[in-house]
Nucleic acid binder design. Structure first.
Lengths: 255, 255
DNA sequence: CCACGAACTTCCACTGAGCGGAAGAGGCTG
DNA sequence: CAGCCTCTTCCGCTCAGTGGAAGTTCGTGG
């Protein structure tokens, strides 16, 4: 009489992926029950899948019973090709920028309606105000995001600027003003934000374009004080951005 | 009369994982047929799984039809906790070392019988002689590997030094000599290699230990010429390694 | 121009792998 | 020690998954 009312139409593969999807930047350690809840699966089902993933090395279980992403998935992820090309090419330039400015440097691409941070460089002394690599932040409230938006298709811009989230008291959320701001970014070639994503963080960013002209990523810098001369750093970023663009494989596209 | 002779005992989850397992450092782009072959599955089966993975964002398909690891898996991998803690803590120190020496810096942990490179910093100008982050190299032929070996359990040392692979003409492969070398590394606190893994690459490495004493990782530097004074860099590495060890969460362990 | 092969995509009916409710085990708390 | 939580194990029903085969697309060379 074992009960059974299996929800139909759900493939096993998608259940496995739902388990992985239960993890995100703010939930990188989950107990079995949390995984079950977040992936929308019965406990017993989650249990079986999690056990299998753990056996393979995709998940690891800590002493306290919580699961985390395992080494095996880490290194599979490492193989993601395009982000890797970009990171490899960009890495020395990020170091150059960091060396001359001593500030936090960010490299981001657009992923749908988010800025995806593919690399960053922080100073040991600097407060860890911002996103780790792999983080996704809204396009409208970050300098790199605005740059990416300024070079995105019209429908993406419209979607991103419809009902933008207020993140801090300084976040600009009026669509009209954001549209003007984005146009301005396109015109002058760099974006600027002041405490719109994180209190105590000011930022500038420039586009990274291929020699052909397509903008594929954005390079930004974040400082922890409202420096009047932040725009003076723009040329430094531009030199680095040009260098990165030139060294990327010709037809490079994100994803 | 659809034929059917399903191989029993193979779970769907393991099939999905087999697909992911088909990718590795030297096979980061695969066609459907290659995936099917490498994961040991019928083409139709691989096709279905791959399609589902692609829909989720775990794989991406390039214009030429080849599949690669997708963004979604990249960022799930990014969440792997422990390596991330280590990388986050170590990153500024790697930059310090790189800034003062201008040489390639490597951070590795032991994963079974391999040195797993969790981070690296290369100079733009330096020849890209070595491993990317995520690479696994043999323990016996790399400086970081020898350091890790010097602080590994006896059975690991024996396993690693049984029939060691010859990678270059300079690779030391006599087990006896390697055992003595490893003991020497443990005694003097750093390891040194000369073109044993890559021709034209010389290296030194030191252990990263927790305040409690356990060695959890290794920090190394690689140069492209046989500098007599390579050992002079050891103190720099040690300062950085001590700093990393101190900042790691108290009971930190790899994996 | 067509035959051939290789890689990919779609189809479909059979069947065992997966399902999940339930019960049991362990652990913490008041 | 009762109540509550999380985790683990069990098991018989059933539908999701399976994979051979046929169809499609593309490139090659005769």
């Amino acid at each position: 009489m074992a009960g059974n009312a299996r929800e139909p139409g759900v493939s096993v593969a998608s259940r496995v992926l739902a388990v992985l999807g239960a993890f995100d930047a703010s939930h990188d350690r989950l107990t079995l029950s949390e995984i079950a809840r977040r992936s929308g699966q019965p406990l017993a089902t989650a249990h079986r899948l999690v056990a299998e993933l753990e056996r393979w090395g995709g998940l690891t279980r800590a002493d306290d019973g919580a699961y985390g992403i395992g080494r095996r998935l880490w290194d599979v992820g490492t193989l993601a090709r395009v982000e890797r090309d970009l990171r490899d090419v960009a890495s020395p330039f990020l170091q150059d920028v960091h060396r001359t400015t001593r500030e936090t440097v960010h490299l981001a691409v657009r992923d749908g309606l988010h800025a995806l941070y593919v690399d960053r460089l922080v100073d040991r002394t600097t407060a860890q105000v911002l996103s780790r690599a792999g983080a996704r932040l809204p396009l409208h409230a970050t300098a790199v995001g605005r740059v990416l938006l300024a070079h995105a298709p019209g429908d993406v811009v419209r979607a991103a600027l419809t009902d933008p989230v207020r993140v801090t008291p300084h976040t600009i959320t009026e669509p009209g003003r954001l549209h003007r701001e984005v146009a301005e970014v396109r015109r002058r070639g760099f974006a600027r934000t002041a405490e719109e994503m994180t209190s105590g963080a000011w930022s500038v960013a420039v586009p990274i374009a291929l020699p052909g002209g397509g903008v594929v990523a954005s390079l930004g810098i974040v400082v922890a004080s409202p420096r009047r001369d932040l725009v003076r750093l723009v040329p430094v970023l531009q030199v680095a951005a040009n260098g990165i663009g030139r060294e990327l494989p010709p037809g490079w596209t994100p994803t």
